[in-house]
């Protein structure tokens, strides 16, 4: 696997090693944030945006540390992260459907119950999903969109293309 600074794409292995992937038990309990902030950059927007104090940094340049027991998967940080690097995944519901919450700043704008094309970290189309929730963050004006995806794709889908 080539380094993410050569490709602009991070793999699950790297995320796991950095402590960004919660264990099965936590995943099954309910929605949870997945941080894909893999490079030490001076920023702590997530730390201050979390209503549950689930995110911490000692120094502003540290990688964020997520306390998965505190994280409720509320998704506030998704719309605030300047790097658009935070997602919420939910595999807690019965059946084969999972959910991914992601930031969206492109046209067309998404609407609830609308069908969307699911894209992976390299922009490849990996399926279709439906928007189950959408709102605009009041500070950043970014759209925060929750889409239904096949359960096995919750760690794959990282963007959407809205079908008009």
């Amino acid at each position: 696997m080539r380094h993410f600074k050569e490709t602009g794409v991070v793999d699950l292995d790297t995320l796991t090693k950095m402590g960004y992937v919660p264990d099965e038990i936590r995943l099954r309990r309910g929605p949870v944030a997945i941080y894909e902030c893999v490079e030490e950059i001076p920023c702590n927007v997530c730390v201050f945006s979390c209503p549950f104090n689930a995110v911490s940094k000692n120094k502003i340049t540290d990688l964020p540390q997520i306390d998965f027991s505190r994280c409720t998967g509320c998704g506030v940080c998704v719309g605030r992260c300047p790097g658009l690097a935070i997602f919420v995944v939910d595999v807690s519901k019965e059946g084969d459907t999972g959910y991914v919450t992601l930031p969206h700043e492109l046209f067309p704008t998404p609407s609830k119950d609308g069908e969307v094309v699911l894209l992976d970290r390299e922009g490849r189309e990996v399926g279709k999903g439906t928007v189950t929730r959408v709102y605009r963050d009041k500070i950043t004006k970014s759209w925060v969109v929750t889409v239904s995806v096949p359960k096995d794709l919750v760690m794959v889908v990282r963007a959407i293309k809205v079908i008009r």
Partner: peptide, 18 residues
Amino acid sequence: PRIGGWFVHAAKIRRYGV
């Protein structure tokens, strides 16, 4: 041989296929 800017900015465009 490596991307010069921050990873997060690269990831933002890669996921739309650039």
